[in-house]
Structure formats: C-alpha cells, structure tokens
Design a protein around this nucleic acid. Structure first.
Lengths: 190, 190
DNA sequence: TCGATCATGTAACGAATGATACATCGCCGG
DNA sequence: CCGGCGATGTATCATTCGTTACATGATCGA
C-alpha cells in the first residue's frame, strides 16, 4: 500500500474529476456541480488546480497520458499488427461508453482553440499514426504501411463515434472485423 | 426576391446563429455573446426562440435538415456509389473547416443526453446508413452492401475528424482515395 | 509538545448568466 | 388616419458563475 502522503490529493482528485467528466460531460459542468459530484468543494478544486482553466488542462493531460500508455502497450504487443489491433479494439470498446463522449467533447473543444488542438493533435494523431505505421512496416512496404496506418486510425475513430452515438456494440465489432479482413486481404494480395 | 414578410426574422436569425456557432463553438457561448456576434440583442434571441435550450434545439434541427438534404442529393446522384461518394467527399471537405467542429460538439453533447442522441442517431447514422446501403446494393449483394455502407460511413467520419483536428486536407483526401480503391477492389474481387 | 505547513470549511465578492417587464417603434389593414 | 400587432430597445430581475479572503483542522518534524 502506498504511503498516504505520497498520493497527492491533487492526483486523487484528478482521477475522480476525470471519472465524473466521463459520465456527465465537461463544458456545461460548473465548479460547484463538479465538486459536489466528486465529494469535495469548489474551494478545494481551485486550491489544488488554481483555476477552472488549469483544471481542464490537467484533465486533458491526464487523458492524453492514458492514451500514450495505451499506445505504448499496443506497440510492444504488435508483432502482428492486425491481431494487436483487434485485441486493442476490444479494450477500447469495453471502456468506450464512458470514454468516447469525453474524447469527442474535448476534441471538438480543441478544434476551436488552437493551443489545445496542438496538444491533442500530437498525442491523438501523430503518436498513434507513428505507432500504427511502425507496426504495419513489419508486414508490408513503408509507403503502404503509412497509408494503411492512417486508414486504420480513421476507421477506429469513425466506428467508435458510431458506437458512442448509437450504443450498438455488436455493429461496431462487426465493422471492425470486416475492416480487419479487408486490410488483411489487401496486405496479402500486394 | 421573396417577400420581406415571408422570410421570418426567426429563420434569418437562425441562419446567422448557426454560422456563428460554426466559427466559435456552442457550449461556452452565452446568449449575450452570441447576440452581439450575430448583430442583435439577447432580448431578441429569447423573443424568437423562447429560451437558450429551445435555440439549441432549433440549431440541431437546422443542421440535421441540412444533412437530410445532403443525403437526398447523394442518393439521387449515386448511380455509381463510389464516384458519388468521392464527389460528395470533396463537398464535405470544402465545408468541413466550419462544419466539423460544430458537428462533433453537438454529437458529444448528445452522447450525454439521450433525447438529443435519439435525434442525431436517426439523422446522422440511420439515414446515411440506409442511403449508402441503397447505393451499394446496385453493385453488390445486400449483405455486403450493408457492411460496406457501415465501413464507408465510419471511414468518412474518422477522416473528417482527423482533418478537423490537424487541418491536413491533403492527407484526408489521400486517405479517402486509398479507401475508395480498397473498397472498389473488394467489390470487384467478390 | 510545539510550530509549521498543507489541507479544508465557511462565507462572500463582483461579474456574468438566462430570462423578463415595460415602453416604444414601424408597418399594414381598415 | 388610426388602431393593432409583431418586432425591438432599455433596464432589471434573481441565480449562478469562478474566484478569493479568512479562519480552522490535521499531520508530522524538531
């Protein structure tokens, strides 16, 4: 068990804040509502994070960090990119119900605000694109690897979007399966 | 020129509101800020729309209506679904810079609120899925048409998302081109 | 034990919010 | 010409917002 003093209350609070945001949304949640939702006071939120803006930044960094770790695991396991992708998709899908709305909300927020867009673009697009490309280069040419990587990334997000909006997990799984086969045939035939 | 009295001020106001939202975002825009942005007063926004919530509903219905018309044009022209899709993509891409952020913002908003989700799901997913499926049934089996339709829809949204976040139109065009060829080969080989 | 430092609760501030009451304007029908 | 009605401007309501001042509690080293 970690020493109580080493788990800074700010981090513990941030975990709860992210969890709350995943269930209730970010942009129309006030500091007081959020504070009540995570069992503290708005006074504490401002004490630990400084301001609402800094809290939002911390939230974005936290989810981006989770993304980075997920990518790292993916690259480590991606000896067969197709299989690793399929396995990773099931993890995404399992957690998507609470994760996807926050993901798209923060992203749309970033589309209006360049500084956020820069951060999210780096983490969500550049990093994943690089990871996918590396993985595909093990089974095809670099040029084709880059193209397939972009398609996989886009497809994953599109399917995730549909699932978040419709709640239809089965259809999403089927779509990923269809697409995986499509790509596999494409790689084999080349 | 249409009679001045028949273009209800509410509708012309709604046009301006949607345009403003596309450039500046919805959720953190106040009635006063919005009113100033579209050259009126918050008094007028409440007069014509009743409340902020009803205004948001009107905005969603407006963009959904635009979607419906776009779909209608697509289905009419989709004798060759692949070519129609490519043509329609270029239209999407041209208008995406101001359209996509609002699209994803409203969608993420809907993911937290079931009533909105129902409306958006019907217009954004069911209708388009049906349109794509119809188009593909002209060149392949019904089962495969449904599967391909879902893939195309998801891919379009994923690529649109990437483009909105990165601003990289060329990469998006290339991805759509790659995917189109992928699908075309799949249809031809079956 | 004592003091220091971090954490927390209470209460309040000024500003901004969504909404409205009231008066007024302009236009068209009679 | 005027009477009604939709549209608009002005001013303000009560709330809620993000933030902060001040006081108190908790915990641990010296």
């Amino acid at each position: 068990m970690p020493d109580k003093r080493t788990e800074h209350p700010r981090e513990v609070l941030l975990d709860k804040v992210v969890a709350w945001f995943m269930q209730h949304g970010v942009l129309d949640t006030s500091m007081r509502t959020l504070a009540a939702g995570v069992g503290t006071s708005n006074r504490m939120l401002n004490y630990h994070f400084g301001s609402r803006e800094q809290l939002l930044t911390a939230v974005i960094e936290r989810v981006c960090e989770a993304e980075r770790q997920a990518l790292e695991r993916f690259v480590d396991e991606a000896s067969d990119p197709m299989e690793a992708g399929a396995r990773y998709w099931s993890h995404i899908a399992d957690t998507a119900e609470v994760f996807a709305p926050l993901f798209y909300e923060l992203s749309s927020h970033a589309m209006y605000r360049k500084p956020y867009a820069e951060t999210l673009r780096t983490v969500l697009t550049d990093a994943w694109l690089s990871g996918f490309t590396q993985a595909f280069e093990r089974i095809t040419t670099p040029d084709r690897a880059a193209r397939l990587a972009r398609l996989c990334l886009a497809m994953g997000r599109g399917v995730l979007f549909d699932m978040a909006l419709t709640g239809d997990r089965a259809a999403a799984d089927a779509a990923i399966k269809d697409f995986t086969e499509l790509v596999r045939r494409e790689v084999d035939h080349s």
